[in-house]
Design a protein around this nucleic acid. Structure first.
Lengths: 205, 205
DNA sequence: TGACCGAGTTTCGCATACAATGTCCGGATG
DNA sequence: CATCCGGACATTGTATGCGAAACTCGGTCA
C-alpha cells in the first residue's frame, strides 16, 4: 500500500478520533515529522481529504480541519435522507443471501460491542454497516458518492453514539430484514425512518 | 491561483472535451512536459481528479481516464434522480429574486448559444445552470457532493447535446418558473421530470 | 507452437532542495 | 495611543533527483 494512502487513513483517523480538532491548521512539515515521511505524500493526502470534505483548502494558506456547525449538520442529514433510502431500495433488489449474511455478521459484532460498551468500535461498525448497504446496492457511482458521506457521518455519530446506539441498531436490524425479504419499498421506508431518527437525536437540531 | 488548480482544470477540460479518451494512461512526465510544469503539481491534480471520479487510480500503476459504460451511466442517473429534485426543492424555498435572475441570465445565454448552434457552450451552460440551482439551495454539503456530479454529467451531456438541447432548456425554464414561484413541490417534480427525460434520451439506455 | 522468463526501459513513489508567498511582530509616525 | 510599514520567520508551492516497481519484448525451453 502506497505511503500516501496510509497517510490519508491516518490523518482521517486522527480527525475522526478528535485528536485533530476542527479548525486545526494542518502544517505539512509538522505532519511529515510526526508520521515520519516527507512532505510529498502528506500534500497528496491533503488533496484527497479536501475532496472528501474533511479539510478546507483556502488558496495559498494550507489546510484546516473542517468545522461542522449545527446548520451544516442539518445540511448533511438532508443529503443523507436523499441517498440512504436509495441505497437501501437498490440493496433490497440486488443483495443475495451472502450479502445479507455480511450485514448480519456486522449486526452480531455490533451486539457484542454494545454489550461491552465499546463506543469506538460501534462508530466503526456503524460506518461499516452503511457502507456495506451501499455496496450491496450494486450502484458503483452511488458508492463513490456515499462512502465519503458515511465517513463524514461517523464524525457526527460519535457525538450521539452513547445515547443513540441501542435504537440505531434496532433500526439497522429492521432494515436488514427488509433487504433479506427483498422488499425494496419497505427497505426504503426503514432507511428513511433511520436517518430521520438520527437527525432528531443529533444535538442542537 | 496555484499551478495545481490550473492543472486540475486543464486536465478535466481535456477529459470533458474528449481529447483525453476514456482509458487513456495519464503519464506524469508527459503531462508535465505538455503543460510546462513539474510532476509535483500534476500528481496532486491527479489525486483530486481521482476523488472526483474522472480518473481511476490502480495502486502503483498511475492514473487512467475513467470509462463510462452504459450500466455506469444508469447508476449515475439513479444518483442524480435522488439529488437534483432535492436541490430544486430547497432552491425553491431559499432562492431570492437575485438568485432567480442569475438562473434567467443563464437561460438567456443558452438561448443565444442554441441559436448559433454552439454545442460546447451549451454543455458548459448546462453545468453552470445545475450548479447554480444547487448553490441556491443553500445547502453547502449538497453543493460539495453535487458539483462533481454535475461535472461528470457534463461528460455524458456532450453525447446527447445535439438531440436533447432544445427540450432540455424548455425543462430548465419550467424549473426556473417553479423556483421563482417558490413552489418547492413543483420544483421537485419538474427537476425529476428533467432528469428522467435526460436518462431516457441517453444512448443505449 | 505456445508459455515462460529475464534484461532493459518506462514510469511511479518518495525525498530533498529551492523559490514564492503569507504571517506576525516590533518600531516609526501621525 | 492607534495605525501603518517593513523585515524576519514560517509555511506553502514548485522543481529536481534517485531508488523501486511494473511493463516490454526478445529469447528460450517444454
Amino acid at each position: 500500500m502506497p505511503l500516501r494512502d496510509m497517510v490519508v487513513d491516518e490523518i482521517r483517523r486522527l480527525i475522526l478520533d478528535g485528536q485533530l480538532a476542527p479548525g486545526t491548521h494542518l502544517v505539512e512539515d509538522r505532519l511529515a515529522e510526526q508520521l515520519g515521511v516527507s512532505r510529498n505524500p502528506i500534500r497528496e493526502a491533503i488533496r484527497v481529504l479536501g475532496a472528501e470534505g474533511f479539510v478546507t483548502l483556502p488558496a495559498r494558506r494550507g489546510a484546516f480541519v473542517a468545522t461542522l456547525s449545527a446548520v451544516e449538520a442539518q445540511d448533511f442529514f438532508d443529503v443523507r435522507l436523499a441517498l440512504e433510502p436509495l441505497g437501501a431500495k437498490l440493496a433490497a433488489k440486488a443483495a443475495g443471501p451472502e450479502g445479507v449474511a455480511q450485514l448480519e455478521e456486522i449486526l452480531e459484532r455490533a451486539r457484542v460491542a454494545t454489550e461491552i460498551g465499546d463506543h469506538s468500535a460501534l462508530a466503526e461498525l456503524n460506518s461499516e454497516f452503511h457502507t456495506r448497504v451501499f455496496q450491496l446496492s450494486g450502484n458503483e457511482y452511488l458508492v463513490c458518492v456515499a462512502v465519503p458521506m458515511v465517513r463524514r457521518g461517523q464524525w457526527l455519530f460519535r457525538q450521539s453514539v452513547a445515547r443513540r446506539a441501542p435504537h440505531s441498531w434496532t433500526e439497522h436490524r429492521a432494515l436488514v430484514s427488509a433487504i433479506e425479504a427483498g422488499d425494496a419499498e419497505l427497505a426504503e421506508t426503514e432507511s428513511r425512518r433511520h436517518v430521520l431518527a438520527a437527525r432528531a437525536a443529533f444535538p442542537r437540531s
